[in-house]
Nucleic acid binder design. Structure first.
Lengths: 355, 355
DNA sequence: TTGTAAGCGTTATCAG
DNA sequence: CTGATAACGCTTACAA
């Protein structure tokens, strides 16, 4: 028989024949399941390596009805998403979960990204800050377990894993008030998914201190921060501190202020949100609220796992005895659930913390 | 973990039965191929929609064996990669190809990313600036068409689509020389994939002007730029201009210089590489060499298409083996090779172009 | 125009 | 411990 022109056409049948065993034996041996002798296993493994055999994930998934592939949608342009994706990989590897990424771009909405993932028969979906209506989300959740990550959506049937935005904003406000600030402005996220939550958290935190919460319209990009800085520079009444919607906006703001000779934090303090890699740069030194991507990622995958187990077990008791943070709320609300991750503040130069 | 999950229970058999036709008719109708009456097609389509049917991509690909899925590896942390990924999606959509993304992170090398893509039986691979040996690349290329995007590697059997780095560096140097600079330093990319190419391009361009090419060790991150700036500030002989390896390093450098009261471009001009979104921000205003991600993406996908066509033809007509060294290398040099995209310079404030 | 049947590469079941 | 055999959901000759 002709040797395949393409090496990837080596199938398990070829391996089995070359090793002198049946395909089922080869399959078992290759997967490391018990049921074959050590000698056979070694021979099969060696043959497979020699032939350059690689399992066809598609065929396997087609046969097994319990795929391990989790689909992820994210926006490459958002640096926070990049951090989350990295964290997801870190959390997925030890769990033996395969990640399939699908990007959301200007020309490609969340729906397109999800459709492509669903066609690939991902067993579950993790949507990073999806910009969709709750109903749409619920629609997807009908066919596959869905986790909305870093999202304000609380929809029946979908698990939400998000930062406690109220606490995050309180962290920022308290930090500034402690340092004597009273005139604090929040530059909101404009069309950002979390805009309402963060603005609300800001207002609550300010009022708790008996302060007047001033919120200005901003956005999610550096450009929005730059525009805000320009408005701020020409305004009559300038605040003493600004809490931005995210780090990207905060950095745009910060750089423009500095370029205009404003002393940060002397004349004006700036606090960001997300604690991205850029915020930590020594020349930026942006104080920021950290969303803890690793915790978000871990809990998201764990929730998928528990939901999957429950689906499989149906009515039998769950034997888990861990004291996981998501445990309580998971039991309490059988079907939905918003698991909340506590943020923490990383104090740097822009709030006058470590000059 | 993740057991017992079924993405969608509705199969084409269900649709066919519900519509009162055979599965093959349903298949043909759903794919919009000719061979069924308009009435039947409509009935099947309607039934499918009502039942919430979705094709199982994996089963389809398993059967067709002519998959249209292209695997892509990239690093979420590199902003240039994000630009390329967006451009790839833009180029893929009209061509009707599906993209499958696989990230390269600190804990996950290119090899891991590629293995996962290969298990998914991607028909082809696009590796964005892969950090691997040529031999490894050639190994993958044996089983699937591979395009190395924005890579210096020129390996037999692998198509490379890259920016003309010599031209890019010449653009930067010429631009600075035109503005009267003669003491120009190149901050190289350290471990970056393109370090050797860009440094060589810099040297050539400088010598063409009769100037002494000074190259300093840098890196691919903002941190590297910051470190370089600190060295520069304390150095005895300071150049009048710096060409950085990429925008990230250039921006780290730029911000640190500005924070230290250095006038850019007055005291020192800075030029970056990649023309990332950040470089264009009004407060950054970084002059940069643009790699044109859209052109890179389009050409990469086009090369894959032509290569795939040729493979299809050859496997059906020529019963040769790939073990023939002469033939193989002949073919390789004939159909692969390096396609070069011309870069262009985007002049902004940091080189004193549009003050 | 439509239906029947044979796989694609894998794993699961149930015999030896 | 090992080996036939039947799916998984889909496409595609080939028949009707």
């Amino acid at each position: 028989m002709l040797r395949g022109l393409v090496a990837s056409r080596v199938t398990i049948v070829d391996v089995a024949r070359a090793a002198g065993v049946s395909t089922s034996t080869a399959s078992v041996a290759l997967r490391g399941e018990r049921g074959v002798s050590e000698a056979t296993r070694e021979r099969v493994a060696e043959t497979a390596a020699r032939l350059g055999y690689r399992v066809d994930h598609r065929a396997r998934l087609l046969r097994e009805h319990n795929p391990r592939a989790v689909g992820v949608t994210f926006s490459p342009a958002q640096s926070f998403h990049a951090d989350v994706v990295e964290a997801l990989y870190e959390a997925a590897a030890p769990a033996g979960v395969d990640l399939v990424l699908s990007a959301v771009t200007t020309s490609r909405g969340v729906a397109d990204a999800v459709e492509s993932l669903l066609r690939d028969r991902c067993s579950a979906l993790v949507l990073v800050s999806p910009d969709v209506e709750g109903e749409v989300l619920a629609g997807w959740a009908a066919s596959v377990p869905v986790v909305a990550l870093a999202s304000p959506l609380a929809v029946a049937g979908v698990a939400t894993v998000a930062t406690d935005e109220r606490a995050g904003m309180a962290l920022a406000v308290d930090h500034l008030v402690e340092r004597g600030h009273r005139e604090i402005v929040h530059l909101d996220g404009g069309d950002g998914v979390m805009t309402a939550q963060r603005a609300a958290g800001f207002r609550t935190a300010m009022r708790a201190h008996g302060l007047d919460p001033r919120v200005e319209r901003g956005g999610t990009t550096e450009e929005a921060g730059i525009a805000a800085a320009e408005r701020l520079l020409t305004a009559s009444a300038r605040p003493t501190a600004v809490v931005a919607y995210n780090d990207m906006a905060a950095i745009g703001l910060l750089l423009t202020l500095r370029a205009s000779g404003i002393d940060v934090p002397g004349d004006l303090a700036v606090v960001g949100y997300d604690d991205t890699r850029t915020a930590a740069l020594s020349t930026i030194g942006l104080t920021s609220v950290s969303q803890d991507p690793r915790a978000l990622a871990e809990v998201a995958l764990r929730r998928l796992a528990t939901r999957a187990d429950r689906d499989a077990l149906r009515s039998s008791a769950v034997p888990g005895t861990s004291a996981d943070p998501d445990r309580a709320s998971d039991d309490a609300t059988a079907e939905v659930g918003v698991v909340t991750i506590q943020p923490h503040l990383v104090a740097r130069q822009t709030s006058g913390s470590s000059r």
